[in-house]
């Protein structure tokens, strides 16, 4: 249970995420921990993740927004910038973080990373090698993963 008062900044961000959600993205705080969010991102159309819904989890550490949110994929995804545990290699989650960024901007950047994988800055070298040497095969595997692990539930 989060005791005491949640910073106003987090309250505002949460309200806006719910009232004015980003297309294809939902982020819902857990009732027992308002710094912890269940996130779902729809695979961008025209990407190899199209038709999939990807579950993620996001946590705002005590020093947020001085420190970036922590976020990772829970759904298995075949992507050169995501490792086996779903951790994401994205500059704004590390050295390029700025307190002017928000949960919303982070989730939009992750969605953009799904549209434009970056095998030159890989987190998973095996996946990145396939991506660089045989892109068709990489895209096919990514589509297979999407079908097997990220299928929309009816």
């Amino acid at each position: 249970m989060s005791g005491g008062s949640l910073p106003r900044r987090i309250v505002k961000e949460t309200q806006r995420l719910i009232a004015d959600p980003v297309a294809g993205i939902s982020a819902t705080p857990y009732a027992d921990n308002l710094r912890y969010f269940a996130v779902a991102i729809e695979g961008p159309s025209d990407s190899c993740y199209e038709e999939g819904v990807f579950q993620l989890e996001l946590f705002l550490p005590a020093d947020y927004p001085m420190a970036p949110p922590k976020v990772r994929f829970l759904t298995k995804i075949y992507h050169p910038n995501v490792d086996k545990l779903g951790r994401i290699c994205l500059d704004i989650l590390k050295e390029k973080w700025s307190p002017a960024l928000q949960i919303r901007t982070v989730l939009l950047s992750i969605q953009a990373l799904m549209s434009a994988p970056n095998p030159d800055d890989p987190l998973d070298n095996t996946v990145a090698d396939v991506w660089k040497n045989d892109e068709a095969k990489a895209l096919e595997t990514a589509r297979e993963f999407t079908k097997n692990f990220a299928a929309k539930k009816e």
Binding site: M1, G3, S5, P7, R35, E57, F59, A62, R72
Partner: peptide
């Protein structure tokens, strides 16, 4: 568990705590 200057108790969720432990 961490306390912010505003007196809020911050709970690190299970998975993120275990990721920290792994690191």
């Amino acid at each position: 568990m961490q306390r912010t200057p505003a007196g809020e108790t911050v709970i690190v969720p299970r998975n993120f705590k275990l990721l920290e432990e792994l690191e």
